[in-house]
Design a protein around this nucleic acid. Sequence first.
DNA 1: TCATATTTTGACAAATTGTCAACACGAAAA
DNA 2: TTTTCGTGTTGACAATTTGTCAAAATATGA
Lengths: 219, 219
Amino acid sequence: MSLQTKITPQDSRSARQDKRKADSRQRLLAAARQLFVERGYHDTRPQDISRLAGVGHGTFYLYFSDKQACFQDFVEQAQEEVDALILARLATCKTHEQRVYGVLEVSMDFVKENPGVLKAAWAGHQLMSRDNPDGTTTPSIVDQWAARWAEVIARGQKAGLIWDDYDPRIIGYAVLMVTSAVSTGDPEVWGDREHFLTNLTRFVLRGLAAPGVGNALKI
Amino acid sequence: MSLQTKITPQDSRSARQDKRKADSRQRLLAAARQLFVERGYHDTRPQDISRLAGVGHGTFYLYFSDKQACFQDFVEQAQEEVDALILARLATCKTHEQRVYGVLEVSMDFVKENPGVLKAAWAGHQLMSRDNPDGTTTPSIVDQWAARWAEVIARGQKAGLIWDDYDPRIIGYAVLMVTSAVSTGDPEVWGDREHFLTNLTRFVLRGLAAPGVGNALKI
DNA sequence: TCATATTTTGACAAATTGTCAACACGAAAA
DNA sequence: TTTTCGTGTTGACAATTTGTCAAAATATGA
């Protein structure tokens, strides 16, 4: 991600090679992403990915232990991309309304810009989840998102803005599910963007808002 | 499903054979279900399914055009099972509260009784969806569920019980997403069943209830 | 230019998936 | 009883997909 202008002679060897190496990986990942989205997991062969990436077939297995690992890396990359966008947006939000609307908006824009990517990533995350060599299962970014919502909710409760009879973990997960509607549904079907986002935001906020608080919705 | 006691000589041939045929299919489907859930889609080979079902390898391909089709049939079967349970339950419900709580409860019981089945079915539905030979894509049962919620919501709006600024289609989908939290999450994690169901029900009802209506929640 | 280290490659091996000619079995006809 | 016929089953085999690795290509520093 950073431009490499001048490098010391000492580093030049590994630096250039690392860049080349990283390049191959990125090209493969980009190709994989395109094909997984276009044709689905099954109709995408490691061969196809390699060819589209412009590298030899064997190179694929230098960067991914197998096809499944490649898919998981694709999912991870897509999720991290959205994650970065969401975090950036959340940093600018003051109210719960802004937070909910912001997350939905960012997700929707991403879906428009990258059709099918989030849908595949979301579905794949569940179907493909795999245990680590050490026996543990990596907590998915989905769980992380749910946990973040849980925190937001817990803070809202302390401030008296959110019903205090909620278990933040559970409701955090519920909010996540609603927001993920944007990712899994077909954007063409939902019609007007503003209409869709407003509806979902209202639903979530009304579900959260403690008595007397909810009337202030200004959407 | 129906007992065959006496059959006319005329029917006897095809009747017995049909039963045998249906048996093979059911055995395969049951085996597939067990293995897909236990090991996941990838680590389940058509061979394994056939062996567990106690039929020859070739028989598998008599009933499923390929492995993917077998998985889709598994998904369909699981969804139809839950669907029947949910419909039966809904028929007994008078209030929205009962409906929401009922659907959640039925789903949760099913998940406890059939660990992993709904999770696999839900994820698979999205990842594996395939176009029909005739070009159309079969509307998934998930869409049907969303549509049912939409109807419920529309009726609630007419009765003045639900916010009338909602688009029923969108909020129907949102409610569906929340209820599907039961299917996708790990039941062990949620802890107390009552606690979990009550939280989700409250969230949904508070999100739906028109002003002045929501205070009557008696959960 | 040479010696060394790193990355790439595609022919090959392994595994999985899918096909089909031969077979098994019950029912009706000869 | 024996033969014929239709249906369902089977596993050896073929096709495809997945994964490996010794050899080759490329880069680096002396």
